[in-house]
Each structure stands twice: as C-alpha cells, then as structure tokens.
C-alpha cells in the first residue's frame, strides 16, 4: 500500500508544514515516508508545493507526479495539477479560496471552506490543519495517538502554546 500526496498552494499557507505533519504521522506508524518540497525563488509569495509519500514498502522516486490525493489550496494549484491526479484519486479543494468546481469526473472531490472555517474560529493560518484533519478522516487514519506524536515532532517546545490550536483545527477538519 502506497499513497502519494501532493500539497499545493501559496507560500505562507503552511503547505510544507501540512506535508511534514503527515510524514511524521506516517513515520510514527512505522511506515516508509518521504517529503519533498518545491524549492527556489517560487517559494517567496508564489506557489509552494510538496510531495509526500507514505508507503508500506521503501519509497522509490520521491517526486509525486500523479498524486493519489491532491490538496489544492489556491486556484493556480488546482489548474496546474488537476489533470495529474490518478483516476479514482481524491482532490481536496479549499473552497473559500477556489470558486470553480473540479472538472474531472473520475476522481473523488471534497470541497471544504478551510480558510473561512479557520478565520471564523480564531484559527487564522490553520486551514492547512483543517484540511489535514479531513484528509486523515477520509482515509480512515485519524489516529489521535499518532497525530499527537507527530505534532510534538513538528512543533518545537518553544511554540508549545500553538499545539492546542493545531489540535482544534485538525478536529474541526475531521468533523466537517
């Protein structure tokens, strides 16, 4: 079993962080994982994306070209990657930032107004975690124990005050 994720959006939306949480969760569950960011000038203000692979077997190529799951957090990302998703795959759309609908008919689509949900609940900047929560729930992998361990790895002790917000956002996504 191997799942390839592509997280895509603007720099500053926590795209890389979301991927990292998922990767750490996989690691905690003793899976093989890889996380590969886009890098370079496009990171500043432009699009950001990262490839995450969670697999039972060792990970081969770490670059996700045809994701099983695409997380699109802005319109350019959906435009760019929609056609790359494998048939039968999943596209998660932040519908507070993307007005159009997904054109593909052979994939599962989830519209979640994550950015709006975040700001309505005093969780600005945590739309990424709301989507992560949804993502894990959909895969039947919302495991509080491993999520907690992954959060501890991703959020340094210095920022421990942020833990509770992240938990809340993940839960909100799960319950959406």
């Amino acid at each position: 079993m191997m799942t390839q994720y592509l997280f895509a959006g603007f720099g500053g939306q926590g795209i890389l962080f979301a991927g990292k949480l998922l990767a750490y969760k996989g690691l905690t569950e003793e899976k093989n994982v890889s996380w590969l960011p886009s890098y370079g000038p496009e990171m500043r203000g432009g699009t950001a994306n990262c490839s995450v692979i969670i697999s039972d077997d060792p990970v081969g190529a770490p670059i996700v070209l045809n994701p099983d799951v695409l997380i699109a957090m802005n319109l350019p990302s959906l435009d760019k990657y929609e056609d790359d998703v494998v048939p039968g795959g999943t596209i998660i759309v932040d519908s507070s930032l993307i007005e159009r609908e997904v054109k593909r008919t052979d994939v599962k689509v989830v519209y979640i107004p994550a950015t709006k949900m975040a700001s309505d609940n005093g969780l600005d900047g945590l739309a990424n975690m709301i989507i992560c929560g949804k993502l894990m729930e959909m895969a039947g992998e919302y495991n509080e124990e491993t999520i907690e361990k992954a959060l501890a790895k991703c959020i340094s002790a210095r920022h421990a005050d942020l833990l509770e917000y992240n938990r809340k956002a993940l839960k909100m996504g799960k319950e959406f």
Binding site: K20, A23, L27, N32, V33, S34, W35, L36, P37, Y39, V59, P62, I63
Partner: peptide, 10 residues
Amino acid sequence: DGTIGQMMEP
C-alpha cells in the same frame, strides 16, 4: 543533488 538535499526522510 538538489532533490536528495531538499527531501526529508526518516
């Protein structure tokens, strides 16, 4: 190379 340098793995 850039990929192995930038990617995270356990």
